[in-house]
Design a protein around this nucleic acid. Structure first.
Lengths: 141, 141
DNA sequence: TATTGTTATACTCTATAACTATA
DNA sequence: TATAGTTATAGAGTATAACAATA
């Protein structure tokens, strides 16, 4: 299997596992991903849409549903009042932690037979490749 | 970044890139994924749903849309007439090839600065981890 | 009886285009 | 005039439950 095909295959398996994990917490996979991104760093609606690879018009509804569940609040930027940032509530933050732990547990269980050195190597390579793929010059997208 | 977090991050970047690629061919990412799975091997509706990580009830509509576009045909198993397999048409097969090439081109471009040895290593590790994650004893999912 | 695919339903995600508020 | 977020709309993906056909 060549490099792009291997990325595709891995992506598929992680998507299935991550989706199943999200569902256990009554979240869609997109909701879990949105919360995870906000946990990584503070993002506006537009930046969030770019990270999730979807149109900004979708964010309104997605954030609304998570606000209704008490996992997010809207925060308007005082310096530029056009900009709004969804921010994790304590409950939202705790949920992200629980999802991450659950996902890590499933991955750990399934990869139990993998040598630690290979996992370490994989983690390092995945970080490098992620960085390469995420280049923001996405004009051709 | 630990192993599960690195998998998550990589998964996200691939999802965005793969989704953008699918969109260029007027496909949703799930449609592209469905076609890709069928190109890898012959699958029934139920098996396909398991691969995609969703309920079998969704497959009817998804396959219907792709049949309407001439990319798939339904084929009933003569040995067990409950089983139906969606099969790629020539057009569907050609589309899968084009999507795969397009995705490989984007990945290749973005990872151009990555040493070939690292790409090779990544491809091998991704295959190993994919296999580990895809274990079919999914009773806890 | 059990399994496979289908249908009905309700909700969520998605892109497009037009809109409001702010800069 | 440009940008950030919202709204309206239509189409697609999703899970649940009940169903028909086949085994």
């Amino acid at each position: 299997m060549d490099f792009p095909a291997a990325l595709c295959a891995l992506h598929r398996e992680v998507a299935v596992l991550y989706g199943a994990t999200a569902r256990r917490f009554d979240l869609t996979v997109q909701q879990a991903e949105l919360l995870r991104q906000l946990d990584l760093e503070s993002l506006s609606f537009g930046e969030l849409a770019r990270r999730l690879g979807c149109d900004k018009s979708n964010m309104t509804g997605m954030v609304d549903r998570l606000v209704r569940r008490g996992l997010l609040v809207r925060q308007t930027d005082p310096d530029d009042r056009r900009i709004v940032k969804p921010v994790l509530t304590d409950e939202g933050d705790q949920l992200v932690v629980r999802i991450r732990a659950e996902f890590a547990a499933v991955v750990g269980q399934r990869c139990a037979d993998l040598p630690a050195t290979e996992k370490k190597q994989m983690a390092e390579l995945a970080a490098v490749v992620s960085a390469a793929l995420s280049r923001q010059d996405n004009e051709q997208l």
